[in-house]
Design a protein around this nucleic acid. Structure first.
Lengths: 346, 346
DNA sequence: TTTAGCACTCTTTTGCGGCGAGTGCTAAAA
DNA sequence: TTTTAGCACTCGCCGCAAAAGAGTGCTAAA
């Protein structure tokens, strides 16, 4: 039982998957011979189909229905059969236009990205908000709101702004705050957040910090401000597209999926996986390692700012997704966002 | 045809509505006599039901089904029949507990409110983010990020923080910025945003602003910073509860509703209505003036900070909602949020 | 004024035969 | 040896009709 399929088997598998993606109906041998450039009789196709089923690429819901792809089938399709074309420039323009009216606000841009992903793919768009730890320190500022309350505003190189209210035990004069601000901005600018954190820890342990009152406060404040709270936030748009999918017409199953979305944490984990890797990733069905999402697939890609990866974005839909059209959309959007993040904030 | 119903009619109407709320099934005369403290025979009940139908409080889906309440029926129920009990202290505690771990961040608190509303009501929670214009100026700060880019951070009395990146045409020295900051904070603190805006407009028109370069810049910057961008944002949690409602088992109709939610603007309008009024508001079916939501009802209440109303929150679900249990939940949550906003930020 | 009885209506369920799509197998054709 | 035509078989889906069930309105009696 050769694990390598013959050319002919591959062609037929491809045709079946594409037909199934288009129609959501089990594909029969006859339908195949009608449609495409397959020059075989139904009987021959049947033989191949039986073989593909035995190898685990196809399954039949019941005897008298056609075949549907298994996860293994989709995986093989995505890995070796799929030829992804580039977006034509018209589509690129259409996508790009969406971002024209969004100014400098990163949050708006990411929301728009999620929306665009959803509306161009007709599935559900996902955008992970940049993890703070993946970003570069640019500026920190402390605003005193009341004797015991300071607002820390922290800006990353890529234009992400994080606010945090910090309670303090002792009154700090505006002058103190200014000094702290200056010190931190001078020492930390250009470092990654991880480096900044490390630095804060080591310096706080060092002797001179013990004696320099102000310095100690500076570190205390900054470490409070840099706790990554927004981390793990995710922007989901177009959940309603799920309601269009015939495979989810069962309300029970539909509800399980939507609830999983609302929880967000599982999606965050899935998007996190894409952080390390280059290019577009496809996660199919049970590869999600989440039983609720076992009939869903994700197409994700990382986006990056000036220095390194910031986060990931993508699309989630049923296993039966038109990968060939969505992969370029995700890819292009990720690149576009990266580009916008690089140019927007000098 | 007296518009005032007899006591008996009211009792029966109430029983029908409550039965229908509990079961989602058309209510027949027999079912009624079985259940409650109604001491009449089915035949008598039928007479009353026929009368109630003629008056428009009930409708029958078809001859051989029971009756279901009309909007007019619900409205009457909510307005005059309903006796809302207070939450018992156990429930209050349960709700309150949810907020313990949320520190000073307003955004987190509001998200939690939406989540709590949803999980305690088993419907969909809505929280409108405070409209900037309804808030009081507390502090503004400008952070220079690059020669042409300034980050404006604006804090309201109630602890809402808004960031805005502002592009400027001419380089401002840190000294300039500091002066501008000081000037604005001294003049504007304690004014409502509307007053601030008005002030900026009038002062910019005045002569002295024409000559004072710095002043002009200060106004330009602040007016750019105070454009209300987050306005109209809304936090929706628990959409999946809609999938549980038998009345929305039709996917078409379900999808229309979810899409309406995703658009948000319609919900914002609906929540806006509650801004003016005291206490809990109920909007039933077509009162939403939105055809997609004609089978939905909202229960909303305004929450407020130190000075005046900030926004509204509530629950949206099918017309057939257990108003008597949800109204207290919404009411209590709104008060709780108001209380938290008042105490949190000295 | 209330209730019991009854005929009537209309939906829902159930059972059943037939149609259609698709399969696997076998034997013939290429 | 590979491909194809033919054929019996399986099984879901559709439509129909009959039966069941729930509820109503009306009338006449309590």
């Amino acid at each position: 039982m050769a694990d390598t399929l013959t050319d002919r088997s591959q062609k037929i598998l491809e045709a079946i998957i594409e037909e199934y993606i288009a129609t959501a109906q089990p594909v029969g041998s006859k339908a195949l011979t009608r449609n495409q450039g397959i020059k075989l009789s139904p009987a021959s196709v049947r033989n191949v189909m039986a073989e593909l089923e035995e190898l685990g690429y196809l399954a039949s819901p019941h005897t008298s229905a056609g075949r549907i792809p298994t996860e293994k089938g989709y995986r093989f399709y995505v890995d070796t059969l799929l030829h992804i074309s580039d977006l034509d420039s018209e589509q690129k323009d259409q996508i790009e236009i969406q971002y024209q009216h969004h100014g400098l606000h990163m949050a708006d841009m990411l929301r728009e990205a999620s929306r665009t992903l959803s509306s161009f793919s007709h599935y559900t768009g996902l955008v992970m908000v940049p993890r703070l730890k993946a970003t570069i320190f640019r500026h920190i500022e402390f605003i005193k709101l009341s004797p015991r309350l300071v607002l820390a505003v922290f800006v990353t190189q890529s234009g992400l702004v994080q606010n945090k209210l910090v309670e303090i035990d002792e009154d700090l004069t505006p002058r103190d705050l200014e000094q702290i601000t200056n010190y931190l901005n001078q020492t930390m600018t250009g470092l990654s957040i991880q480096e900044v954190r490390a630095r804060v820890v080591t310096e706080m342990a060092q002797e001179k910090a013990l004696y320099d009152h102000l310095l100690r406060r500076a570190f205390a404040l900054s470490s409070a401000a840099l706790i990554d709270e927004t981390s793990g936030d995710i922007i989901i748009e177009g959940t309603s597209h799920f309601l269009e999918q015939p495979e989810f017409s069962d309300l029970k199953c539909m509800k399980r999926i939507v609830q999983t979305f609302e929880q967000k944490s599982i999606l965050v984990d899935l998007l996190d996986r894409g952080l390390e890797s280059e290019g577009v990733q496809v996660i199919i069905g049970s590869e999600t390692e989440c039983s609720e999402l076992s009939d869903c697939s994700l197409i994700t890609a990382a986006y990056s700012g000036k220095r390194g990866t910031l986060g990931t974005l993508g699309v989630i839909g049923p296993n039966r997704m038109p990968y060939s059209t969505i992969i370029p959309i995700v890819d292009y959007t990720a690149n576009l966002i990266s580009r916008l993040l690089d140019t927007d904030n000098d």
